[in-house]
């Protein structure tokens, strides 16, 4: 790399770093939109205001950053289809005792296995931003908005919490 290009490259890197939180924020908002709308396709699913527990691992910076981005995206209430989503930060170790939430959003980096098991015990829907959360069976559903909306539902996890999605929805998403 020539000296001439270094300042430009450094500036780009700085710009990218500065933009990263914004980008993560934007992605979190999009993913949440998908998650919230997907919940409306549950049989006897939520309507009105739904509080989402945002599960994070305080020892993992990426998880904390995603939690912060998700909570910022939710703000005082995020509209997603017919739902208005409120957020409540929940440490991963506290899922077993969580209350006042209607579903859990599991950030990337959280050990999804124990969290998912605890959520199943409480018959709570779990949504992961990482597809492996659903494919491993820990989460009921994983969602991602970019580059294309992808929704993966774990049939075993859904059955464990008694979640039944509407037939048309099931034909348009990926089940594992």
């Amino acid at each position: 790399m020539s000296n001439k290009t270094k300042p430009g490259a450094l500036a780009l890197c700085a710009l990218a770093l500065a933009a990263a939180p914004l980008s993560a924020h934007a992605d979190a908002a999009k993913d949440l939109q998908v998650a919230g709308r997907a919940l409306t396709f549950l049989e006897n699913g939520p309507t009105g205001k739904a509080t989402l527990g945002v599960v994070f691992d305080p020892s993992k910076p990426a998880s904390v950053a995603e939690k912060n981005a998700v909570m910022a995206a939710i703000g005082g209430g995020m509209s997603a289809g017919s739902l208005t989503i409120a957020g409540k930060a929940v440490e991963a170790g506290d899922v077993g005792s969580v209350s006042g939430v209607q579903a859990l959003y599991i950030t990337t980096g959280v050990n999804a296995g124990p969290v998912g098991a605890a959520a199943k015990g409480k018959k709570l829907i779990t949504i992961g931003s990482d597809v492996s959360c659903a494919t491993s069976g820990a989460c009921v559903m994983s969602v991602s908005a970019d580059p294309k909306v992808e929704i993966v539902v774990s049939r075993s996890a859904a059955a464990a919490v008694g979640a039944v999605f509407k037939a048309a929805f099931r034909m348009m998403i990926r089940e594992v």
């Binding site: 709308r37 919940l39 409306t40 396709f41 549950l42 049989e43 006897n44 699913g45 939520p46 309507t47 009105g48 205001k49 739904a50 289809g81 017919s82 209607q102 579903a103 409480k122 018959k123 709570l124 829907i125 049939r155 859904a158 059955a159 919490v161 008694g162 979640a163 039944v164 999605f165 509407k166 048309a168 929805f169 099931r170 348009m172 089940e175």
Partner: peptide
């Protein structure tokens, strides 16, 4: 019926969804 079983009691919020959709809700989809 893949998810045979009880409905999701704990995720029922302020009120239950009025009814299941048989016709396609193109807008929501």
């Amino acid at each position: 019926t893949l998810f045979a079983g009880a409905s999701v009691g704990l995720i029922i919020l302020a009120s239950a969804t009025a009814a299941s959709a048989q016709s396609i809700d193109y807008g929501a989809m």
